[in-house]
Amino acid sequence: MGLLDGKIAVISGAARGQGRAHAIRLAEEGADIIAFDICSDIDTVPYSLATADEFDDTIEQVRKLDRRIVAEQVDARDYDAVAALIDRGARELGGLDIVVANAGITSYYRSEELTPKQWQTVIDVNLTGVWNLSRAGVPHLIDRGGGSIVMISSSSAHVGLQNLNHYSAAKAGMVGLMQSMAVELGPHMIRVNTIHPTTVRTGMAINQATFDLFLPGVGLSAGSAEAEDKAGEAFKGLNSMPIPWIDPVDISNAVLYLASDMGRYVSGTQLRVDAGSAVK
Rank of each mutant, 00 (worst) to 15 (best):
residue 2 G to C: 08
residue 8 I to T: 09
residue 16 R to I: 12
residue 18 Q to L: 15
residue 22 H to G: 10
residue 23 A to I: 05
residue 25 R to C: 12
residue 28 E to A: 11
residue 28 E to T: 10
residue 31 A to H: 08
residue 35 A to I: 05
residue 39 C to H: 13
residue 39 C to S: 13
residue 45 V to P: 08
residue 46 P to H: 09
residue 49 L to T: 11
residue 51 T to R: 14
residue 53 D to T: 14
residue 56 D to F: 07
residue 58 T to L: 09
residue 61 Q to R: 15
residue 62 V to C: 09
residue 64 K to R: 15
residue 68 R to S: 15
residue 70 V to I: 11
residue 78 D to S: 14
residue 80 D to C: 09
residue 81 A to P: 11
residue 81 A to W: 08
residue 87 D to L: 13
residue 88 R to S: 10
residue 90 A to P: 10
residue 98 I to H: 06
residue 99 V to S: 05
residue 99 V to K: 00
residue 99 V to T: 03
residue 106 T to S: 14
residue 107 S to F: 02
residue 111 S to R: 03
residue 113 E to A: 04
residue 114 L to A: 01
residue 117 K to F: 00
residue 117 K to H: 00
residue 120 Q to A: 07
residue 122 V to R: 01
residue 123 I to W: 00
residue 125 V to G: 06
residue 127 L to Q: 03
residue 129 G to V: 09
residue 130 V to R: 06
residue 132 N to Q: 06
residue 138 V to N: 01
residue 139 P to Y: 09
residue 140 H to G: 05
residue 145 G to E: 01
residue 147 G to L: 01
residue 151 M to R: 07
residue 151 M to E: 06
residue 154 S to I: 07
residue 154 S to L: 06
residue 157 A to L: 05
residue 160 G to T: 03
residue 161 L to H: 05
residue 167 Y to E: 02
residue 168 S to C: 04
residue 170 A to R: 06
residue 171 K to S: 02
residue 172 A to V: 07
residue 172 A to T: 07
residue 178 M to I: 02
residue 179 Q to P: 00
residue 180 S to W: 06
residue 181 M to I: 01
residue 182 A to S: 14
residue 183 V to Y: 11
residue 185 L to M: 07
residue 185 L to Q: 04
residue 187 P to G: 10
residue 188 H to W: 07
residue 197 P to G: 09
residue 197 P to S: 12
residue 198 T to W: 00
residue 200 V to I: 14
residue 201 R to P: 00
residue 202 T to K: 12
residue 204 M to K: 11
residue 204 M to L: 15
residue 208 Q to Y: 08
residue 208 Q to L: 08
residue 209 A to K: 10
residue 209 A to S: 15
residue 211 F to D: 06
residue 213 L to W: 10
residue 214 F to Y: 13
residue 217 G to Q: 03
residue 224 S to I: 01
residue 224 S to V: 02
residue 226 E to G: 03
residue 227 A to V: 01
residue 229 D to E: 15
residue 230 K to F: 04
residue 230 K to G: 02
residue 231 A to V: 03
residue 232 G to S: 00
residue 236 K to P: 02
residue 238 L to G: 06
residue 240 S to D: 02
residue 242 P to D: 11
residue 246 I to T: 11
residue 247 D to A: 13
residue 249 V to Y: 09
residue 251 I to S: 05
residue 251 I to V: 15
residue 256 L to W: 08
residue 257 Y to R: 07
residue 258 L to G: 04
residue 261 D to A: 13
residue 263 G to I: 10
residue 267 S to M: 03
residue 270 Q to H: 12
residue 271 L to M: 15
residue 271 L to D: 08
residue 273 V to S: 08
